[in-house]
Design a binder for these strands. Sequence first.
DNA 1: GAGTATACCTTGTTTTACAAGATAGCTAAC
DNA 2: GTTAGCTATCTTGTAAAACAAGGTATACTC
Lengths: 107, 107
Amino acid sequence: MQTTQMLKGIIDGCILSIIQEGEVYGYELASKLDDYGFESFSEGTIYPILIRLQKDKLIQSTLKKSTAGPKRKYYSLTEKGEGELASFHMRWNQLSNTVNQILHKGE
Amino acid sequence: MQTTQMLKGIIDGCILSIIQEGEVYGYELASKLDDYGFESFSEGTIYPILIRLQKDKLIQSTLKKSTAGPKRKYYSLTEKGEGELASFHMRWNQLSNTVNQILHKGE
DNA sequence: GAGTATACCTTGTTTTACAAGATAGCTAAC
DNA sequence: GTTAGCTATCTTGTAAAACAAGGTATACTC
């Protein structure tokens, strides 16, 4: 049981939340997640999630020139994505309350 | 993306925590988790996890007679399990801080 | 034109969550 | 004594997720 194995599904919500703050592209997202403390997210994790989120119509993308390197694919939230993010907020609150209750029962 | 899909790996820690409070058997654990708010954990989820935790030597079991029905397999934490639980506490705190930071960035 | 950094994507493996169903013990009622 | 119902555990099979590893391509600098 490692840190990263706890995150399944939660990353989706975090990614949606970061995208909501402003358009980002995958490569940038990887370093943002790293800054936040998610150290173990390689691009092999992030790109498939972005593709899945777009397939589910939660995010949309536009290509823009990079200052150095190939074109960047910038993502932004769709309306459906905003709804999903709001729903994730509630699920996360409930989850974290439940887990905290279990972990701190005896205190 | 449903509630239960966020829980991967976290349930392990919650189960360890509940077992630490006192010996429990699988069937009882299912209803305890339900009481705490994890509504969607069937026995098909819980028993395989118990088996895995025991295989990893984090918990140990003893059979005891039931008042009604077949014998119950009571689980308790091993020393290794207590270490893992402590480690889970830290991982959970870090995770929940990180996620809360991301979700409440703009507030 | 070689090297380096940027940027994206794919493949294959392992683990997880879970639904569904199999198995079996005990008690009570009939 | 057998049926019904609750208790209790376990197995099988499926789908999805996380990830490591590797592949491809663009642009800048020297």
